[in-house]
Design a protein around this nucleic acid. Structure first.
Length: 271
DNA sequence: CTCTACCCCTGTCTGC
DNA sequence: TGCAGACAGGGGTAGA
């Protein structure tokens, strides 16, 4: 499940093989992703030179002079380079065939991801326009979060997972950041002191940057192979550990559901 | 405006 | 062993 660190690691991994490279053609085997792949994509992208590869939240953007391809990896998507001769498997839905002899391949068993084409400024695209700040920038700070949380009743976990508030905090890191901050996931966002929100902001930044750093060092093949970024087996304190002892106090961790998402916390350490 | 439930999809796991 | 059902999850969207 690509969270922001995985997405950024993917962007960094594919960027060197794309910038200044011309697209030969585009092959779409399965257009039915989260939304249908933009039908014009193959004709518009063909013969264009890729100028840059950027990211906003969990969206990756591949820019040309005439438009931008926007990719979201969804739950199970991956984007990687293969040799053009590499045979496509069942879940290999889209190939961007490059003039370099390589091929940027999009694989997504569950098809929760999306591939779209836009010819306007991509920051103006409906999916991108209303996104909140990037968690690792100064724009995401305690003053901002406090202002946003003011008089909000929704649980703090659901709140920080809302991409309009801040992008890139998925379920795993939301659980972990709240544990690190000693905050119960179901506490209404508006009722948490500024001091504790400051701690939360710091911990979100810490955990995401640590995961990105780890991804940068443990990640292997974006070229050849199966392209799977190999998941970071970082030490998770609460996620996936329901019923097991808290790493701090040994009490059994509790699992509940918030906003249809699995939520794990320590009943003693988180208040 | 705020919030919750639902839905898209399929590989993997659990229970009968 | 086989099969049905639950579950995982980002995030848009409908409806309360």
């Amino acid at each position: 499940m690509p969270e922001l660190p995985e997405v950024e690691t993917t962007r960094k991994g594919i960027e060197p093989y794309l910038v200044d490279v011309i697209v030969d053609r585009v092959v779409i085997r399965q257009p039915m992703l989260r939304w249908p792949v933009t039908p014009e994509l193959p004709t518009r992208l063909a013969q264009q030179v890729i100028r840059s590869v950027t990211r906003r939240g969990k969206y990756i953007a591949i820019h040309t002079d005439v438009g931008t391809m926007i990719v979201h990896l969804g739950m199970s998507g991956s984007l990687y380079l293969v040799d053009q001769k590499t045979e496509a498997l069942f879940h290999d839905h889209v190939d961007i065939i490059l003039g370099s002899g390589k091929c940027l391949r999009y694989t997504d068993p569950r098809r929760f991801g999306s591939i779209l084409w836009t010819e306007e400024d991509w920051f103006a695209h409906p999916l991108i326009r209303s996104l909140g700040p990037e968690p690792l920038t100064d724009e995401f700070n305690v003053d901002y979060l406090t202002a946003q949380a003011k008089s909000r009743k929704k649980p703090i976990k659901t709140f920080i997972m809302d991409s309009k508030i801040v992008v890139g905090v998925g379920n795993i890191y939301a659980n972990e950041a709240l544990f690190m901050s000693g905050i119960r996931p179901d506490k209404p966002a508006g009722g948490i002191s500024k001091k504790r929100l400051a701690l939360l902001v710091d911990n979100i930044k810490t955990i995401l940057s640590a995961a990105i750093k780890q991804g940068g060092t443990t990640l292997k093949d974006f070229v050849g192979g199966d392209g799977k970024p190999g998941y970071f087996k970082q030490n998770l304190s609460v996620y996936g550990r329901a019923g097991e002892p808290c790493v701090n106090c040994q009490k059994a961790l509790i699992e509940s559901r918030l906003g249809q998402r699995s939520t794990v916390y320590c009943p003693a350490c988180q208040k």
